Computed example of a mutant assay.
Amino acid sequence: MTKKLNTILLLDDNPATNFIHQKFISRVDCTEEIVTFQGGFDALDYLGSKTKKALELMLVDINMPMMDAWDFLEEFQKIENPHVKDTKVILLSTSVSASDFEKAKQIPIIRGLRLKPLTVKAVHEIMDEFFPDIDLTE
């Protein structure tokens, strides 16, 4: 059986973006589970108490109402659930600004910034860079 990630979490206030990203990740067939959230508070609730499987990757939209990526990640880092301690975070945006890059450099858990929407190729690139031991389908 091919090794896969346990869980990838998508956090974007736009349900269509979550849907598209979910489809592309499914096509790559790199994870057992994809969980999606449209708001940071719901995602934090899930991450703090409900998840019982390792969460290896989070794709987080930078600009969201109520709680943007920066506020979300500040709260995420306070979570003491052992299943999320090694999570890699990729920030997503429709336009990545220089200030976003600078801010991201200050937060060690952020592993990169990507333009959205993601593509199948982008998912492959993320997987190859951060999870090279995972065999990917085409």
Results as ranks from 00 to 15, higher is better:
T2R: 13
T2W: 02
T2S: 04
T2Q: 05
K4Y: 07
T7G: 12
I8V: 08
I8F: 05
L9N: 06
L10V: 05
D13F: 03
D13G: 14
D13L: 01
N14L: 04
P15Y: 10
P15Q: 15
A16D: 15
N18F: 02
N18I: 00
F19E: 11
F19N: 03
H21L: 01
H21M: 10
Q22P: 01
K23V: 03
K23E: 14
I25Y: 00
S26Q: 08
S26V: 02
S26T: 12
S26C: 06
R27Q: 10
R27L: 14
I34M: 03
I34W: 01
G39Y: 04
D42F: 00
A43M: 04
D45E: 10
G48W: 00
K50T: 05
T51A: 03
T51Y: 03
T51M: 12
K53G: 03
A54T: 14
L57G: 11
L57C: 03
M58K: 11
L59E: 15
V60E: 05
D61Q: 09
D61R: 07
I62M: 01
I62N: 01
M66L: 09
M67N: 09
D68E: 11
W70D: 14
W70L: 14
F72K: 05
F72Q: 12
F72H: 13
F72V: 15
F72D: 12
E74M: 13
E74I: 15
E75N: 08
F76N: 09
K78I: 13
K78M: 10
K78H: 05
I79C: 06
P82S: 01
H83D: 13
H83C: 15
V84N: 04
D86I: 13
D86T: 13
T87P: 11
V89D: 05
L91N: 12
S93R: 13
S95L: 02
A98M: 08
S99W: 08
F101N: 10
F101Q: 11
E102L: 12
K103G: 14
Q106Y: 03
I107R: 02
P108Q: 14
I109Y: 00
I110C: 09
G112M: 09
R114S: 09
R114H: 09
K116T: 02
K116N: 11
P117C: 03
L118P: 07
L118W: 07
T119W: 05
T119E: 08
K121Q: 12
K121D: 13
K121G: 11
K121E: 10
A122M: 06
E125P: 00
I126G: 03
M127A: 02
E129W: 11
E129P: 05
F130R: 09
F131M: 10
F131N: 12
F131I: 14
P132I: 01
P132H: 00
I134P: 15
D135G: 09
L136E: 12
